Computed example of a mutant assay.
Amino acid sequence: MQKIGIFFGTETGTTRLVAKKIHKLLGDEIADKPVNVNRITLPEMLRYDALILGTPSYGVGDIPGRSAGCLEANWEEFLAGAGSADFSGKRVALFGLGAQERYSERFAASLIRVYETFQGMGAEMVGSWSTEGYAFEHSPSIVDGRFVGLVIDQRTQGMLTDGRIETWLAQIKPSLMERIALPA
């Protein structure tokens, strides 16, 4: 049986925490345990047809990585080895972290960069998320009036995290399930 792959980049551990919450709600039967992108190779990611990818926001609209100030390898370093990877036929949902009060002018800015990268490699992107309930000046991660993925502000809205994850998973799970083969 193929499962949903969950991969994340993290600097402080919060993106890992959210990935673990997602995995727990989906369960071991349909999702593999979340893995940090600094611990995998591209072929390991490509074996999945349904993916949930998580990113922190680091730098000023950068893909998180050492050049954006991260101490450990992150999405920048993983994607540097992706070259012309083909994600055609893959269905990808994203979640990203941000701090809407501290970085109101560029809230969750890294999410759009990861979105554009995987979309550019042919992935079918799913899982846009409403901007309602957030207070910020600007986010580049909004397309057609919605975030390109689930946005979590653990710093100022941590009490909303679990509910947001549950609602988002209810929206994306059917779409991701279409890509994995479950036994009859």
Results as ranks from 00 to 15, higher is better:
137 E>C: 02
83 G>Q: 06
157 Q>D: 10
144 D>P: 03
43 P>R: 11
23 H>R: 00
169 L>C: 10
102 R>G: 13
134 Y>H: 12
136 F>L: 07
180 I>A: 09
70 C>P: 02
164 R>E: 05
32 D>S: 09
90 K>F: 01
41 T>N: 08
52 I>V: 09
153 D>T: 01
42 L>A: 10
97 L>K: 13
145 G>S: 01
73 A>I: 04
41 T>L: 14
171 Q>C: 04
112 I>W: 04
87 F>I: 05
160 L>K: 12
175 S>P: 03
58 Y>E: 15
36 N>Y: 13
10 T>F: 02
44 E>D: 10
7 F>M: 05
118 F>V: 01
82 A>L: 00
75 W>Y: 06
147 F>E: 08
107 F>A: 06
41 T>D: 05
114 V>D: 01
38 N>A: 09
97 L>R: 02
26 L>D: 02
77 E>M: 03
1 M>Y: 08
106 R>W: 09
7 F>H: 01
171 Q>E: 15
176 L>H: 15
70 C>V: 02
95 F>M: 11
162 D>A: 13
18 V>P: 08
111 L>R: 05
16 R>Q: 11
79 L>N: 03
126 V>G: 02
67 S>P: 15
133 G>Q: 08
99 A>Y: 15
160 L>W: 06
77 E>G: 09
79 L>A: 14
76 E>A: 03
132 E>K: 15
87 F>P: 14
139 S>D: 12
127 G>M: 10
170 A>T: 12
